[in-house]
Amino acid sequence: MRGGLAILVVLAGFWLLWMAAVPPMNMKWEVSQAQRAGAEVVLPEGNIRDASALWLTLRNPGLIPGTYVQEKPRLPAPAQVFAELWDTTVGKRLSSKRSLVYHAWITLEATLLGFALGTGLGILLAVGIVHNRVMDASFMPWAIASQTIPILAIAPMIIVVMNSVGITGLVPKAIISAYLSFFPVVVGMVKGLRSPGLMQLDLLKTYSASGWQTFWKLRLPAALPYLFPSLKVGIAASLVGAIVGELPTGAVAGLGARLLAGSYYGQTVQIWSALFGAAIVAAALVGIIGIAQNMTLRRMGFGR
């Protein structure tokens, strides 16, 4: 109950901050419109460009309501964003190109495929790194280096290279997703697979267990509690990867396309609603993994 209240307080804080930021962000345009319409506005001496947004807002309080309902605001008001969200999800047919659900689904496909690829690759790499000294020494630095390259720089290259061999659409985006999501999985799994203590390994040695049995009965189950937090980071990174992968494709479809199209045409409301859409999808994906985590770990006796 108290937790719920605390969450509401934080939400209210965000909302207030947002509401307070809208008038100064949008005031200049409001003032110049009012001026053009011949209304009385308070201006500083000299050019309007030199006036600070805060100064204009404080001196022209009558114009504040207008800042919340502009068609192309610098910072849209919460109500505008949520109205757009509502309109583009519930208000449109799912197959419509204007439906955010349609675009989110396009991005989600790439996210899930990329996440599956990245997780699979990450687990395989971790198994190799734990069992093979050469792989440990040779792969880990590359894995770390791969994450220091800005994804915005490498994404267009992946798209272009794959395009030149005739692979377009879903797969290149998924590969960018996988590129971002394999790393947390590698790190978590390596730590998890190495988590069994010397005593537990000795125990299996006294059973004269094979390497395969040691992996299957000890290392893998011991790694699962480490895997799930990595999957949560990985799936969020996958979504970012899919969105970034949509930017250089010429903005055909997907949340990334909505972001890019919105910025081409100054549709800030559309940009913000796409951002919120992405955040909601990410939260849902992380939530689903959280549920899987709870169910799995409880079945394994870790739950308490």
Partner: peptide, 14 residues
């Protein structure tokens, strides 16, 4: 032989 260690060392997931 069977070996018993200082700590029980039971697997928590079993």
């Amino acid at each position: 032989y069977g070996y018993v260690f200082q700590a029980a060392g039971l697997y928590p997931w079993r």
